[in-house]
Computed example of a mutant assay.
Amino acid sequence: MSNARTQALLQSIMGAKMYQSSDKDETPSTVPLITVSRGFGANGSEIAARLAERLQVPLYDKELINEVTRQAKADPFLTKQLDERISGAMADWITSMFTGQSTSQDTFNYYMVKVIMNIAPQGGVIVGRGAHLLLSQKHRVFRLRVEGSLHVCAERVAKREDIKLKKAEKRVVQVDKERRDFVEGLYKNRSTRHNFYDMVINTDLFKPQATVGVVELALAEMGFVIPKK
């Protein structure tokens, strides 16, 4: 993980406005906030990167979020900053997700949730980590899922990792299960139910650039500002 990327995200969090809870109507942010959930081998990482580039917003992939989470656990000052930027009601809601749990993984996930909640008000493209469930009730967000058939996804994985197709098929099934288990364990919900997404795209049919174009149209309909080409 690039230390420069990590430091840039940390500085972004530190410089962000405090997240305030209010009963008053506020003008919704026009900066795109997108979560990308993906099947293994469905080109999700490439699509997320292309979206971030097209929309001129930061890309927050799994590795970056995990690295900042590790630093948050180890740095009391950073932990304090994360806490101060979350309202009392939201902090209570996050804490309630982990009530009665005390394993090392639960502690890591607790800080990971806080990191994602601090990222969200600034906009960006967040890959995985169940962010589509975490942010759906708290922020104005476009939730994208990209999928593909087992055969096509396995072909991509086989080519990318230089392995046999049968082994690639097993990898796809295994990684998809691990991702489902992670989200279901953390959010007590099924990550693949389509009513949790605003758009589901079959990447057997749509190439990454075409997917970006479709999402761009949907974001414009939602009122997000799309930078001119």
Rank of each mutant, 00 (worst) to 15 (best):
A74R: 11
V36C: 00
L51Y: 03
I94N: 04
M199Q: 14
N43W: 08
E216G: 03
D198E: 04
G123T: 08
L33K: 02
V31L: 08
S191C: 06
P227V: 09
S45P: 12
F108L: 13
K24P: 04
P208F: 00
R85F: 03
K159Y: 06
L144N: 12
G123P: 01
T27I: 15
V157N: 04
P28I: 06
A49H: 10
Y60A: 05
S22R: 05
R5I: 14
V175I: 15
E221P: 11
Q71Y: 04
L217M: 14
R143W: 01
R180P: 03
A72L: 05
Q11P: 11
V215F: 03
K167M: 14
N118E: 05
V125S: 02
D92M: 07
Q137L: 14
E184N: 13
H151T: 15
G41V: 03
N202H: 10
V127F: 07
G148Y: 05
A168H: 13
Y110D: 12
P76E: 13
K138C: 13
A52W: 04
L10D: 14
V57H: 01
I94H: 01
T203V: 10
N189S: 08
Q7Y: 00
G39A: 15
H194F: 01
K170Y: 03
F182D: 08
A42S: 07
D75Q: 10
A210G: 03
D25P: 01
G213F: 00
K114Y: 01
H194M: 01
P227K: 01
T27V: 15
F182A: 12
L134Q: 08
Q101T: 12
S87L: 07
L82P: 12
T203D: 06
M199L: 15
G128R: 00
T95N: 08
I201A: 09
A168W: 03
D106K: 07
D92Q: 13
E216D: 04
E53N: 08
R54G: 05
R129A: 09
F108T: 13
P121G: 06
A91W: 07
F77S: 14
I163V: 11
G100Q: 10
K177P: 05
L150V: 14
A120C: 05
R160L: 13
K164G: 15
P32T: 10
A168T: 12
Q7R: 09
G124T: 03
L9G: 09
A52V: 10
L82C: 11
M97K: 05
K177W: 05
Q105V: 11
S22E: 02
M222T: 15
V68P: 08
Y197I: 12
L82G: 13
K159N: 14
I201P: 12
L186F: 04
R145E: 10
G223Y: 07
D25N: 02
G39F: 05
E216S: 10
S29D: 13
